[in-house]
Design a protein around this nucleic acid. Structure first.
Lengths: 208, 208
DNA sequence: GTTTTTGCACTGACCAGTCAGTTCAAAAAT
DNA sequence: ATTTTTGAACTGACTGGTCAGTGCAAAAAC
């Protein structure tokens, strides 16, 4: 009789949930939440429909937990990039650059999750709206923090609008990365990173 | 989105289609395509369900025509901004700046359309995928054109990656604008524009 | 008199969620 | 060491409801 309590060792339950996450993320990225049926998710995961409901209270709960899981990974990766730069004695601009790279690497590894996240982020009137807000704020806060520190130590102009600039940076990375995936997947990460770095550092339109 | 033009006198037919576009765009932006029913669209437009099918072959055809219509407006507005700057003897960077403003103004006027567009753009496996590609390319081409001209006349660095930079600019505007709408709607367009301008002109992290 | 809209009943496919029953490995009893 | 019990995990047929799309006669608009 297995108690399957903690996250330790593994346990069958957790493995099944993982399979369901993986199946759901690609299907929902391709088709959207409403167009994806629970039967499809179960089939792709190689599991009976009942198992989905044994593991998750409903289709939308499965989706919400999937969102939390994915954004958790992203936030950790951004934070890690910022801290690593800090330890290595880099500037705040270096930290932003490292975070751009971490963002690109994440999107490259989990393209389906990113698609799904973007598609749902600005929808109103949906059950998981609040989950999404919380989780968004966690990720954006990491970037805002670095920007604020940069302003504080004089490295960045104190005229910048922190929340808007953070949003713009996220958008830059997000859209460039999705376009890379969708329309020129043969390009390397370094390539894409270099292009965005140039934009961040004002080497596109040079200043007057 | 439009009052009632298209080939002179227009007529009743066109007015009905217009009402259906307006009803569909907000509903689909809020709920997504699959979660929005034809009955809802008809009701919001104040029209009988039969009328929807008298005017459009199917739900997805209605949606595709809506996409074409909306992106047409955006492209025209971007092109107009670029040409106006040209006439006034502005630089290419001025043209990019004017296009950023035009993009913000568009998103401000048609937030629902923008939400819906973003949500569908990177989906694969959908009927209207090809429509979306064509229409995306039209809009991005306007920006790429200006970038290329800027590189040609030496105003912009010839190291920039035109398609990637164009995508990044689109993303910057898109995400910043949607965030503005969703999380700080009290800000003025000028305010948001100034923040993005600063980023474009490298006045955030200054160059070395 | 032609075009467009209405209202409404109808169909057939599809789908979220349920539930009675099965499986199986570990625990308890012998 | 063998048999029996237990219960968490899983199964898949089934239900009740929803929805895209149809058909059509009558009314309204032009």
């Amino acid at each position: 009789m297995e108690s399957s309590s903690t996250t330790a060792g593994g346990g069958r339950r957790e493995a099944t949930r993982q399979k369901l996450y993986e199946a759901a993320v690609t299907l929902i990225a391709e088709q959207g939440f409403s167009a994806t049926t629970v039967d499809e998710i179960a089939e792709r995961a190689g599991v009976a429909k009942g198992t989905v409901y044994y593991n998750f209270a409903s289709k939308s709960v499965l989706f919400e937990e999937l969102l939390r899981h994915g954004v958790g990974l992203l936030t950790a990766s951004l934070r890690e990039a910022a801290e690593r730069t800090e330890r290595d004695g880099g500037t705040k601009v270096d930290a932003l650059d490292a975070m751009i790279r971490a963002g690109l690497a994440f999107i490259n590894r989990y393209p389906a999750f990113t698609q799904l996240y973007v598609a749902e982020l600005w929808r109103t009137n949906r059950a998981w709206q609040s989950t999404l807000m919380v989780v968004r704020q966690e990720a954006v806060a990491v970037i805002e923090g670095v920007l604020r520190e940069g302003v504080a130590n004089g490295e960045l102009s104190d005229e910048i609008d922190v929340p808007l600039t953070a949003a713009a940076l996220v958008g830059m990375v997000l859209v460039a990365a999705l376009d890379w995936q969708a329309f020129q997947p043969e390009r390397s990460l370094d390539d894409v990173h270099a292009a965005l770095s140039r934009l961040l550092q004002g080497r596109v339109s040079g200043n007057r």
